[in-house]
């Protein structure tokens, strides 16, 4: 077992536990965005930053990727952590203001404005869909392409991928494009337009192996 101090409280965790898992288990909530249970830790959104160490050597690390260490001193909501989180949220708002998830985060953390040039991206590069496709759907149909500001998510050669089963897993985990995909969760509904479609592929051959996440299956509808 590993002993560490979490917000001044001495705690014991299993070796290999990440700081995020430890803090969540012990009741210190840490906001997350790119993290998702069942997917490998990724550390892309930086929302889960915590402060480790003490004094001038204290530093911010992403708790979803940082494993617990013996004697580590962790603070999950120090002033520095809160400032960093607000900045992250502000930057996310600047690139993706239409996302319900990000709006909720902003509201929960008291971010009332964003001071950067407003963009209207439809992706925050959190990599959830890429990991979902690879790790849960075993398809690897989508992935990151390009580099720097040209980085984006897509299929090879921007063609319909042969390994994609149109399961919709990528859409269902996306925190940015929820206009399309949260109809089953009434609290998050924004437009609800998609709720009027009925799932058409139940009768189709191969549905049992499809592992379809799309409710309703808009992609099947479109491809008909």
């Amino acid at each position: 077992m590993i002993n560490l101090t979490l917000n001044g409280l001495p705690v014991e965790v299993e070796p290999g536990t990440t700081l995020l898992e430890a803090a969540t288990f012990l009741g210190f909530p840490i906001p997350t965005l790119c993290h998702m249970e069942g997917l490998s830790p990724y550390g892309a959104c930086r929302l889960c930053v915590v402060e480790i160490g003490e004094g001038p050597r204290a530093k911010l690390v992403s708790s979803c990727t940082y494993r617990a260490e013996q004697g580590l001193k962790v603070r999950t909501s120090s002033a520095r952590v809160v400032r960093a989180r607000r900045m992250v949220i502000e930057l996310l708002l600047a690139s993706c203001p239409q996302s319900k998830t990000i709006q909720d985060l902003a509201s929960a953390h008291g971010v009332r404005q964003q001071r950067f040039r407003q963009e209207h991206e439809d992706c925050i590069m959190c990599g959830r869909c890429v990991r979902m496709c690879e790790e849960q759907m075993m398809a690897k149909a989508i992935g990151f392409q390009g580099r720097g500001e040209h980085r984006r998510i897509g299929t090879p050669f921007d063609k319909r991928s042969e390994v994609c089963r149109l399961c919709g897993g990528c859409i269902s985990v996306c925190p940015a494009c929820q206009l399309r995909c949260t109809y089953s969760d009434p609290d998050k509904v924004i437009c609800g337009g998609c709720a009027n479609l009925a799932p058409p592929c139940l009768e189709k051959p191969g549905f049992d192996d499809l592992m379809c996440y799309m409710k309703p299956c808009v992609a099947c509808e479109i491809s008909k």
Binding site: G143, R147, T155, P156
Partner: peptide
């Protein structure tokens, strides 16, 4: 494109990964 498909087939890597590398550099 056909060459990348051959590479994917023979190396067992997914085309998505290969395309990612090819567009990264």
């Amino acid at each position: 494109e056909e060459a990348l498909r051959v590479v994917s087939e023979r190396t067992g890597r997914s085309l998505t990964d290969i395309y990612g590398v090819a567009t990264f550099y």
